[in-house]
Amino acid sequence: MNRPGIAAFFSSGASSVAPRVDALFWSLVLASAVVVAVLVLLNLTFLIRYRRGSPARRGPLEVSTWKFEATWIGLTTVGFLGFFFWGARVYLDMERVPADAYSINVVGRQWMWDIRHPNGRREFDELHVPLGRDVRLLLSSEDVIHSFFAPEFRVKQDAVPGKTVSVWFKPTREGVYPLYCTQYCGTKHSQMTGRIVVMSPDAYAAWLTCGPTPRIAERGRELFTKYSCSGCHDQPSQIHAPPLLNVYGSMVPLQDGTFVYAGDEYLRDSILLPTKQVVAGYQPIMPSFQGVVSESDLLDLIAYLKSLPTAASAAPQPSPAAP
């Protein structure tokens, strides 16, 4: 967006992974150009030299064809394997989210991007991120499949309803960059676009606190009552349900004798798929909230559960401004 026209074609992008993707892309362009040039040259030579009635010498081939066949099968296979390893190497790094990445929730919805920062600041179709920081987006969708595409970052990931998928990048240049939805999602698919604003960490920290920051944990508490979670999980209760204090960040013992780490994913699963992991000593009596609780409410509920005193309160969210 800030680099219009043909200059963008040779731009090195605005994320840490972009130069690596570009190096692979341009190597593929170069290799393809060489192959096309050789083929065009050979074809033209043969077409002219062996046109009907030309004086060129013909007759059967003196060497057996298998030598040529083996050569080009071997060469293409080796070349392809090389590019396979290169592409897979970069991809694996793109998929491995750094442990201390700064997490932002992104919900796709017909036809907007609904973005929540860790302190509760919410924005639509615009994503502010700090420069030089590993940023992890927790993508989910409220309705159909969307896809988060930041071309200048060379990053793309589908937002699939019913699950949360991580994608990460590290912005390397301040500026404003386009954001597109690239999975067809209905009538206004082409208007599900937005902007990504890369700011200096200080500016980002200031931005984070200046806007309206609805207390999502408080809203989560209201939802906790609204969806009748409190009826069973608040103590004291008639129904035998696991208490939720000290859950987040702990190792929860399960019915089958194993343990599970209670992170965001566990909390989400416990609400949507309560029979998937039953806590030791309890009956699988909780109903599923799949299709009942919206993606947006779900995020607030999880925020509330995380705000309760936790086992891991010694290790709080990493501060956004830290590089």
């Binding site: 892309f25 590019f83 060379r154 793309k156």
Partner: peptide, 23 residues
């Protein structure tokens, strides 16, 4: 077909496909 096939190689390369997929 050669151009189509070679650009197919671009799309088979994981890291490049992430960028150009669905474009």
């Amino acid at each position: 077909f050669t151009v189509g096939g070679l650009t197919g190689i671009f799309l088979a390369s994981l890291a490049v496909d992430v960028h150009v997929h669905d474009t």
